[in-house]
Each structure stands twice: as structure tokens, then as C-alpha cells.
């Protein structure tokens, strides 16, 4: 199956590969897997004052489309508010990367990872507030 130029470009030069400190209270980590193909994806966001995402990093072990989907997601996340980030849809990734039907699950995985990272960050904030008031 042929990959689109954009997928190849992201897969060969992935943006924002790396790791943020998962114990940092301002970092949210999303870890997801695709049972059908065995891909694993970790996507992290660092949230600054005002709820704006300052940094986003990912590490994906999977096919080119999975790497490209998460690479693109991290590019989009930077500078977004958490609410904007939560609205990220896999269909936008599909359109931007021109993913064929058999690779749509890669974009779903990236969306899941973004949602999981936001949920992890929010859970940390709740825990911090609860801890502070106790």
C-alpha cells in the first residue's frame, strides 16, 4: 500500500519525538495501544498557566501512519487550550495525512492518546487541589 507524501514526510522526520517527566504535575501522559496490530503510542502534554499547552511529545512504536498521526497531533496541540485540544478529531488527521481506510485506526489511536493525556493532566490537577485543601 502506498503512503501519502505527508505520511512519509512525518514518518521520516517525526516532530516532537521524546519524553516529558511523567511525574511533573503539569504534564499529562496518554498511553494507548491498538490490539489489532500491536502498536503502542505514548503522547504527553505540558500545560502552562492559563491552561495552554506549551509542549507536546510522543513516542510511537508502530507503522508509518501511526507515527505520522501522533507526530501531526503533537504539532497541532502546541499553543492550544485544553478545551481546544479535547476537540481534536481523528477525521482531521485522516484529511491532513490523506490516510486510506485501512489506516484510519492509526488516527483514532492518536485521538485516544490526546484524550488520555488530557484526562491524566486533569486528574493530576484534581489530586493537587484535593491535596492542597486537605
Amino acid at each position: 500500500m502506498a503512503y501519502s507524501d505527508k505520511v512519509i514526510e512525518h514518518a521520516e522526520n517525526p516532530r516532537n519525538v521524546g519524553t516529558l517527566d511523567k511525574d511533573d504535575p503539569n504534564v499529562g501522559t496518554g498511553l494507548v495501544g491498538a490490539p489489532a496490530c500491536g502498536d503502542v503510542m505514548r503522547l504527553q502534554i505540558k500545560v502552562g498557566d492559563g491552561g495552554v499547552i506549551e509542549d507536546a511529545r510522543f513516542k510511537t512504536f508502530g507503522c508509518g501512519s501511526a507515527i505520522a498521526s501522533s507526530s501531526l497531533a503533537t504539532e497541532w496541540l502546541k499553543g492550544k487550550t485544553l478545551d481546544e485540544a479535547a476537540g481534536l478529531k481523528n477525521t482531521s488527521i485522516v484529511e491532513e495525512l490523506n490516510l486510506p481506510p485501512v489506516k484510519i485506526h492509526c488516527s483514532v489511536l492518536a485521538e485516544d492518546a490526546v484524550k488520555a493525556a488530557i484526562a491524566d493532566y486533569r486528574a493530576k490537577q484534581v489530586a493537587k487541589t484535593a491535596g492542597g485543601s486537605a
Binding site: 498511553l31 495501544g33 490490539p35
Partner: peptide, 19 residues
């Protein structure tokens, strides 16, 4: 591929470490 087929967070973490 139902809801109970989702691997646990600890499994995914172990798999990430293996990777």
C-alpha cells in the same frame, strides 16, 4: 474488540518499556 479487550495501563507501560 469489546470493552474488556482493552489492555491495562500497566500492560501498555510494560510493552512501552520492552520497546
Amino acid at each position: 474488540d469489546g470493552a474488556d479487550a482493552k489492555p491495562s495501563a500497566s500492560f501498555l507501560m510494560a510493552m512501552m518499556e520492552r520497546r
